[in-house]
């Protein structure tokens, strides 16, 4: 054991010198590669931000905007869209005033309170906790990073591939040639504002469920379970067994659902904030609501494929 201890002066000095040399080499190697390392780390954290954004987008935004950003007709605009990345800012008069990234950030954070009478059935609610929404600041930043990451694919779209729906609130009609789409390209304008297509009073429940944007928050296929009630509104996959998980509805499920549609505050579950519009009683006739309730309670309900006017497409 005694031999472990170095007594010699010279060997101690050498040990000290060797150690100093090792430290200098290690720090020197680090210095050599710092630029590359910082560049990689910058990209790394941008990439991870987009990954986080994808999760938040899937949980909160995809029901209306689509996970691929394709949008949902009459409900939410496409984000994976050439128009969105090249022209939208100009159309809302913000070109040169702010960047698209800031525009997206503001929209996500504060929602769109001014768009109450727009072509979209639902207005976008504020998502940032700063404005009463559910997301923290860093989550808004990440989800904006995800949206902005659509740019690469969006800019490769041709006119017919762009899923965008012209915005009705812009001051002038979109000029496609300005965004690099040739003027003679065949352009089929997407039918707008589906709510106005079929007259009130005679509409099918499966049509209403989509047209009034119920599908934006309520998933028809996902079952209701204690662990996953539904992100923005309760899942409807097992709504025909409503009484089993909502005891107060057991006596008369149909009346419970009807009441919930007509005045959403009636049985509001605490987890969902003030998200559901309270004007459905004005937007549907009572018979339509009754049929919608029956359709929801039917475990074998059918959802028809429809064209832009709301007519069933025969297969």
């Amino acid at each position: 054991m005694r031999s472990l201890y170095v007594r010699s002066f010279g060997s101690k000095l050498i040990w000290g010198l060797v150690s100093s040399f090792v430290i200098v080499v290690c720090v020197g190697l680090t210095a050599q590669t710092e630029d590359t390392r910082m560049e990689i780390q910058t990209k790394n954290w941008e990439g991870r931000g987009i990954e986080n954004g994808a999760v938040i987008f899937a949980n909160n935004c995809a029901t209306c905007h689509g996970q691929q950003g394709q949008g949902l007709q009459g409900i939410a605009p496409a984000l994976n869209s050439r128009y969105f990345f090249t022209r939208r800012l100009e159309d809302v008069g913000q070109d040169g005033v702010m960047t698209l990234s800031n525009y997206v950030y503001l929209t996500v954070a504060a929602g769109r309170p001014s768009k109450d009478n727009s072509q979209w059935v639902n207005r976008m609610v504020p998502w940032s906790s700063q404005f009463g929404g559910p997301l923290r600041g860093d989550q808004v930043v990440d989800v904006v990073a995800y949206v902005m990451n659509f740019e690469e694919t969006a800019l490769q779209q041709t006119a017919s591939e762009d899923p965008f729906q012209p915005f009705l609130d812009v001051s002038k009609p979109p000029e496609f040639q300005n965004i690099g789409i040739s003027a003679d390209a065949e352009w089929t304008p997407v039918q707008l504002a589906v709510t106005s297509v079929l007259p009130m009073g005679d509409r099918d429940p499966d049509y209403l469920f989509g047209a009034l944007a119920c599908s934006g928050c309520h998933d028809l296929n996902e079952p209701q379970a204690p662990s996953s009630m539904g992100e923005s509104g309760p899942n409807f996959g097992t709504i025909h067994e409503l009484g089993t998980y909502r005891p107060e509805a057991a006596a008369d499920p149909a009346a419970y659902i009807k009441e919930s549609i007509m005045s959403p505050d009636a049985f509001r579950v605490a987890d969902y904030d003030d998200a559901m519009p309270d004007d459905f009683a004005n937007r549907m006739t009572e018979e339509e609501i009754d049929r919608l309730v029956q359709w929801l309670l039917d475990p074998d309900r059918v959802t028809h494929a429809r064209d832009a006017e709301g007519n069933i497409i025969e297969e």
Partner: peptide
């Protein structure tokens, strides 16, 4: 020298 050697080991392991 002991502390220098320890510092060298810590630095090398970290780097």
């Amino acid at each position: 020298t002991f502390l220098l050697a320890v510092t060298a080991i810590i630095t090398a392991v970290t780097v």
